[in-house]
Lab assay of single mutants.
Amino acid sequence: MADQLTEEQIAEFKEAFSLFDKDGDGTITTKELGTVMRSLGQNPTEAELQDMINEVDADGNGTIDFPEFLTMMARKMKDTDSEEEIREAFRVFDKDGNGYISAAELRHVMTNLGEKLTDEEVDEMIREADIDGDGQVNYEEFVQMMTAK
Rank of each mutant, 00 (worst) to 15 (best):
E48A: 03
L117V: 04
T111I: 12
K22F: 06
I53C: 14
L113Y: 04
V122P: 00
E141R: 07
G135Q: 03
P67W: 08
M52A: 00
A74M: 06
S82C: 15
I126R: 04
E84W: 03
S18P: 11
Q144N: 03
M145Q: 14
Q144P: 10
T147Q: 10
S39R: 12
A16N: 00
N61Y: 09
T63I: 13
D3A: 05
P44G: 02
K78H: 02
M145R: 02
R87F: 13
R87H: 11
K149F: 07
V109D: 01
K76I: 10
E15I: 15
D94L: 10
M145C: 08
E48M: 15
G135R: 10
G97I: 05
Q9W: 15
I86K: 05
D65L: 06
T6A: 13
I101F: 14
S102Q: 09
F13V: 14
E8I: 12
M72L: 14
M1K: 08
F142H: 06
L33K: 00
L117W: 00
G133D: 06
M52K: 07
G97N: 10
D132M: 05
V122L: 09
D59M: 09
K76W: 14
T147R: 08
L70K: 13
V137E: 01
K116S: 07
T27W: 04
D23E: 11
A47F: 02
E85Y: 10
V137G: 04
G97S: 11
T111M: 03
V137D: 03
Y100A: 07
K149A: 10
N61D: 11
D65N: 14
E15Q: 09
F90P: 02
V143I: 12
G99Q: 02
I86R: 03
R127L: 14
E55T: 00
D21Q: 08
D3R: 15
T35A: 12
L19P: 11
I86A: 09
R75I: 13
T30S: 12
E85G: 11
A74R: 06
T29Y: 04
N98G: 12
T35E: 05
M110C: 04
N43W: 04
G24K: 12
E88G: 11
T29M: 05
H108Q: 12
G99H: 05
Q4M: 06
E105Y: 06
E124H: 05
E115C: 05
M72V: 14
G62K: 11
T29P: 12
D21Y: 11
E83N: 00
A2P: 08
E48S: 05
F17N: 02
K78D: 07
A104L: 05
P44R: 08
V143H: 04
R38V: 13
F13Y: 14
R127D: 03
N54A: 00
R75Y: 12
D81K: 03
P67R: 09
A129R: 06
V109F: 13
P44F: 08
F17I: 11
V137T: 09
K76E: 13
K78T: 10
I126Q: 01
K149R: 12
E32C: 10
D81W: 10
N138F: 14
E88Q: 11
R107Y: 01
M110P: 03
G26S: 10
L40Y: 01
T71G: 08
M145P: 09
I101A: 11
D21C: 15
E85P: 00
S18H: 03
D65K: 07
K116W: 15
R38A: 04
N61R: 03
R75N: 01
F69W: 03
G34M: 07
A104W: 05
T63C: 03
N98Q: 02
R38M: 13
D96K: 15
N112R: 15
E140P: 05
L49C: 00
F20D: 06
L117S: 12
T147F: 04
D130S: 09
E48L: 08
A16K: 02
T45P: 05
E55A: 09
V109Q: 04
M73C: 08
L33Q: 00
D119Y: 12
I28L: 11
M1H: 07
L40G: 03
T80Y: 03
D123R: 11
I28S: 09
K78I: 12
I131S: 08
P67K: 03
T80S: 11
T118L: 08
D23F: 01
G62A: 15
T80I: 15
A47V: 11
L19A: 14
A89M: 08
E32F: 08
L33S: 09
E115M: 14
K149E: 11
A74G: 14
T35D: 04
F17D: 05
G133E: 12
N98R: 10
T147H: 08
P44H: 10
P67A: 11
G133M: 10
T29G: 00
V122T: 15
F13E: 06
T111H: 04
E88M: 06
T147C: 07
V36H: 00
E140G: 12
P44V: 15
G24Y: 07
D65Y: 14
D59R: 10
K14A: 04
M1E: 06
N61Q: 05
A11K: 13
I28K: 07
G135T: 03
E141A: 02
Y139L: 00
K76L: 03
R75D: 05
G114A: 05
M77T: 12
E85K: 04
D25H: 07
E15N: 02
E12H: 10
E105T: 15
R38Q: 06
M110R: 02
Q9G: 09
M1S: 08
E124L: 00
N98W: 07
G135A: 12
L70W: 12
F20K: 06
E121N: 01
D96Q: 15
G114N: 14
S39V: 13
A11G: 10
N43G: 06
E8T: 08
G97C: 10
K31M: 09
D96M: 09
F20Q: 10
G60C: 13
E105W: 09
I126M: 14
L117T: 02
